[in-house]
Design a protein around this nucleic acid. Sequence first.
RNA 1: GGUGGGGUUCCCGAGUGGUCAAAGGGAUCAGACUGUAAAUCUGACGGCUAAGCCUUCGAAGGUUCAAAUCCUUCCCCCACCA
Length: 422
Amino acid sequence: MSGLLEELEWRGLITQSSDREALEAHLATPGRTLYVGFDPTADSLHIGHLVPLLVLRRAQQVGLRPIALVGGATGLIGDPSFRDDERSLNSPDVVAGWVQKIRDQLAPFLSFEGDNAAIAVNNLDWTAELDVITYLRDIGKHFSVNAMIQRDSVRSRLEREGQGISYTEFSYMLLQAMDFLELARRYDCTLQVGGSDQWGNIVSGIDLVRRHLSRQVHGVTLPLVTKADGTKFGKTAGGAVWLSAERTSPYAFYQFWLNTADADVVSFLRYFTFLERKEIEALANDVEQNPQARGAQRQLAEEVTRLVHGQESLRSAQRISDALFGGELSALTEADLEQIALDGVPHVVVDEGSGLLAALAQAGLTRSVGEARKLVKSGGVSVNGAVEGDERRELMFAEALFQRFFLARKGKKNWLLISVKK
RNA sequence: GGUGGGGUUCCCGAGUGGUCAAAGGGAUCAGACUGUAAAUCUGACGGCUAAGCCUUCGAAGGUUCAAAUCCUUCCCCCACCA
């Protein structure tokens, strides 16, 4: 009845699930509750978090009650699952700050009103006061170390030469299992969803709930997003692609999706948009027939940017993309250039007569002046639309657009707006 | 606490007195080709206003004309044992 599983199924979003038929039957009853956990490992979520977050939203759309859990406690420990090395701990103050930011970031994706209003929780609420003896007796007693060390998720840490795992991280799965138990108790939550790396932790939770409450609860994992060329999804030159506009501008965000490879775009449409099956099939056909138009990429970029940053930000991202990639730079007006800076293209202010190289380095477009020099020498930089071969190029009013601006470009798509200061 | 192994440039990983800014691979960046794709090929890949100089091989000292390489102490990681 809920249709959640069918929806996830055709989108390719189910990697593993606990007893599928039982789950299907379970979800047939209206009003079920599910949860996804997000650990605060930074002050913002990134696009890797988007898949489970959107699943939570999809679930709410078909009538389930979503719980977004922020790991104020688990974030203090660090999930060892499939990680090669031990994490360094973050201070409680820092993590608490991140918890708040992530809560705020999650909220717009869910509705906190209506019959199946979303719930936001923090697992620190039920772990902060827990004493260690109670924890060991009530939780720890249900876990077999023999079973825990069999988990794939920690195997590399146990077998790999030169690596180990601390008791702290090893305990992570108990904390996550406890979360499921707590949510089952408090909110009758009966389904946990997470990335495929979470399978072990989810199963631990299912077991714990069964032992404590004699109830059958369920788990589903989502695929790890991969790219056809084997490189890591979600990374760009500047690092991860973040959901916060401060870390990744809407323009950069839009460009990220627009640059999706043909081989990946269809699955990304399924994972990251709410477009219906027919629409996605039409776009898939488009990729086949008319790849150079990149219609699917455009649609993907549009949908995801709107979802994360809203209609306004999408417009400005498109406006600036059109301006920079559309045609003649000479067609840009002074107002356009001013807008470009506001819309999120990297921007630096320099004194007249400053060197181009310094400006590139200052803007972070290159890591050092030397790198900028090499780049210019190899023809990788253009200024105001023309390849710049002179490493000594100085930025003078006389040559600036509107006596103020230089539009520099590194490679084909990395723009930098330079303003010359009076 | 004991014994053994180990910490190398973004990552993996070679290097055991000069020929080492340090092999090789990956990642990354640029150029060519394109569609702001992929694949492929080419180049770059510690810093420096680049001839040359400066800083790097866990940390600090030391030996030497010369150290990533040898010695001392310390820190950290791993395995096994207690």
